[in-house]
Computed example of a mutant assay.
Amino acid sequence: MTARPLTFAEFYPRYLREHQQRGTRILHFIGTSLFLLCLMLGIVLQRPMLVLYGVVAAYGFAWIGHFFVEHNRPATFQHPWFSLRGDFRLYWDLVRGRERF
């Protein structure tokens, strides 16, 4: 018998449990902000390498949060697309004040 595929609605509460520490959320926020900045600059300046730098910054800050603050394994390893979507949802919720640092 095969398991039913996971939905994002089922995944996101787990994502939030794995991002409970303030330090983890701050590091994710910094990393995502750097990614968005590099993405915009890469497009405006027509420098695709800036986008790659943004990806490295985003994952670097996030993984530091998981390994050294939260002491867990990033969800990216098991659910990369849901994890990416969760990163952006958490970022947006932090910006709007729906989640706290």
Rank of each mutant, 00 (worst) to 15 (best):
L84V: 10
F77W: 14
H28G: 05
H19L: 03
I26Y: 14
D87M: 03
L6D: 08
L27D: 07
F101Q: 01
F11Q: 05
R100E: 11
T2H: 13
G65P: 12
S83W: 13
Q21E: 15
G31W: 10
S33W: 07
L84D: 09
R17M: 15
T32V: 08
L39Y: 04
V44F: 15
M40P: 02
P74E: 06
L41K: 01
D93T: 01
E70L: 11
F88H: 00
H19E: 01
R47P: 02
L27A: 07
Q46R: 02
H28E: 09
G23T: 13
H28R: 05
L6A: 06
Q78N: 13
L84M: 15
Y59K: 06
E99D: 03
A9G: 08
Q46A: 04
T76R: 11
R25Q: 02
R89T: 11
L41V: 07
D93P: 00
L84T: 15
Y59P: 04
T76S: 10
C38W: 08
F29V: 13
F11S: 07
D93M: 01
P48V: 15
L16M: 15
G42Y: 06
R85V: 00
E99L: 00
L41Q: 07
Q20Y: 10
Y91F: 15
L84W: 14
F101D: 03
F11R: 03
V95E: 08
E70R: 09
R4P: 12
A3Y: 10
G23L: 12
I26P: 10
R22L: 12
R4H: 14
S83H: 12
F8G: 11
I30D: 02
I30F: 00
G97R: 00
W92V: 00
L36W: 07
R4K: 14
F101W: 10
L94N: 03
G31M: 04
